[in-house]
Nucleic acid binder design. Structure first.
Lengths: 214, 214
DNA sequence: CCGGATCCGGGTTGATACTG
DNA sequence: CAGTATCAACCCGGATCCGG
């Protein structure tokens, strides 16, 4: 990317991460951890493969990621400098939250993209009770979300001993977790719920404190 | 900008503000407040005039700014939605701070760009004493920086009753404020200091807590 | 001079085909 | 699987032009 030529932290940042797709690649590596080329490609639907290769080269040169050649097929890992972008990703995620309402008909939502918003927007309603684990499953991807000790954590992969499993469209599962729809509506929209649906009540939402104000 | 087509807060944000120059225009409006076209242009050296016009239209359509026609010549103002980008700008500014060390020979630094980093990186060393005001002047732009009650504030424009005025290269003034150089070195680098140089001691730096670690 | 609009060359991106 | 190669379409940058 061409430099803005400005001695300003914002401009210098954009010199490095302002290219198209770059921050989304960082998002993928933050959520998934060490990833292979093909995993990144499926996590970034629509990215031209040559751009992905270009960006990975750029990011390596800039010191944001490392190409780990340990396991015969290359694996990409963020360096601490790359991980330090998490506050930027979080800020963008928060600012973008209102935009999620207006989605185009063929917009895509992959389950693992729930990991960051789950950490940002979900809260543990009842810290004193035992941990609750749920799994969201769509296609062949699973996300594990846990509420325990007042905190919500999330990661890619199957949940261990889940209290409930949500199978079906990720968007429906997400709206259910946010409390925007109830279990009946979720089922109507094609979501299958295994286990104890009551476990879902453990999750609350942080964010705009009031629904209606005037 | 073409949409990423991903239901993800980060991707949706970038759909709106991911275009080249867009976030820097927001930075200008955050720092300067209501601004005219020409003011934005001089605050964004290098921006092609057609791009500035295009982006202002895009930002207005996206609801991030308003075109205020009150005073016969149009004035651009951020809406609350636009101002809500401040955490994003801050996060980028913080992440980009280490990059400021490596500047190209013809990189530009305009005085008003100090406003955001002054708020982010400077601290008031002695909250109990009376307020201290300084002014940084380079070319025909001035920035007022104040330390009072434990907080540092900064804004574009001349300082009222400054304790000290720094006249000369903005980069030198900034390095002096950060404590990276002393008054003698600053003078050697072409900075003129009027008033009480001792007032500068009032400012400390927040940031990487240790200079050397091992 | 202010506030843009228009035009054009070149670089970047997007889509797809291909290869070790 | 992990990219490279190719090419069209689009976006950006630089210059010029134009109406108040």
């Amino acid at each position: 990317m061409r430099s803005y030529g400005q001695i300003c932290g914002v401009a210098k940042s954009l010199d490095v991460i302002g290219d198209r797709w770059t921050l989304l690649i960082v998002r993928e590596l933050l959520v998934r951890g060490a990833s292979r080329y093909t995993e990144l490609r499926t996590g970034l639907p629509g990215i031209p493969t040559n751009l992905l290769a270009d960006r990975l080269r750029d990011l390596e040169e800039a010191g944001l990621l490392r190409r780990d050649l340990a396991s015969l097929s290359a694996v990409y890992v963020l360096t601490p400098r790359g991980e330090a972008l998490e506050p930027v990703i979080d800020a963008l995620g928060r600012w973008g939250a209102p935009l999620l309402a207006s989605t185009a008909p063929d917009d895509v939502l992959l389950p693992h993209w729930l990991v960051l918003p789950a950490r940002l927007y979900l809260t543990d309603n009842d810290p004193s009770k035992r941990a609750v684990r749920i799994e969201v499953r769509d296609g062949h991807e699973q996300v594990a979300i846990k509420a325990a000790d007042g905190k919500v954590s999330a990661r890619l992969g199957p949940a261990r001993k889940p209290d409930a499993i949500l199978i079906g469209p990720t968007l429906v599962a997400w709206r259910l977790l946010l409390g925007k729809i109830d279990v009946a509506q979720a089922r109507e929209s094609g979501l299958e719920i295994e286990g104890k649906a009551a476990a879902l009540k453990r999750f609350g939402t942080v964010g705009p404190p009031k629904q209606s104000k005037h």
